[in-house]
Design a binder for these strands. Structure first.
Lengths: 107, 107
DNA sequence: GGGATCGATAACTCTTTGGCTATTGATCGA
DNA sequence: TCGATCAATAGCCAAAGAGTTATCGATCCC
């Protein structure tokens, strides 16, 4: 029962990794070195996080000489928005049912 | 640097736990027994998940005799929506900057 | 060509976490 | 009152995951 939301939620659950993604959203394309500089963890750790973010579709990489530039792929957040909307829809739907019930009781 | 989104993302990252929350959104208030029946894991596991969901503010509990009824607290999802909107805002803001730059270059 | 830099990978450690069984406390019903 | 049921807790175990250092391949520059 593991659906597509899984990787998305799990990937964003780690604070270090989410901070990297947030920074890419804020400041646009960044090299691994630049991201490492302010991440508080080692370069290999950052590379691993970027790998997971890429697997989740949240970032793209672009190679230029020996540097790798990463950028946020905002569209990948859509399933998250959809999921939230769906939860709200479920809630609303049950509320409507209750409303209908009350209306019928009113008659 | 651990902000409030942390617990929310982390809590929703586990598929079993998220399924429980989704069910509460879909079907409204449920007892622990009912939730356990279709969760695929043991009752103590479900109780633990419910404890974490409650800590994250995602569910409420209501005691009635020896049963405990849980219900979804949809408002707790707000920070998630906010976060997504903020990421989009960052993105949009950078896009606007680019647009301004291009406009200035055009002059 | 040879040293330096950049980023990915390998190999390892340690902590966290999700699961289990067993048990307890509380309430219900006969 | 006594057995049964409900949910929470305790205690344990195995797997996952985030971090580290060491290293490698590739590119750059002198």
């Amino acid at each position: 029962m593991t659906n597509a939301h899984d990787m998305l939620f799990r990937t964003l659950a780690d604070p270090t990794r989410r901070a990297i993604f947030e920074r890419l959203c804020r400041e646009g394309e960044q090299t691994v070195g630049a991201l490492t500089a302010q991440s508080g963890v080692s370069q290999p750790a950052v590379s691993k996080h970027l790998g997971l973010l890429r697997q989740a579709g949240l970032v793209r990489d672009r190679h230029e000489g020996r540097q790798t530039h990463y950028s946020a792929q905002l569209a990948a957040l859509a399933p998250l928005t959809d999921w939230t909307n769906q939860m709200n829809a479920f809630w609303q739907s049950r509320f409507d049912d209750l409303e209908n019930l009350l209306k019928r009781m009113d008659q």
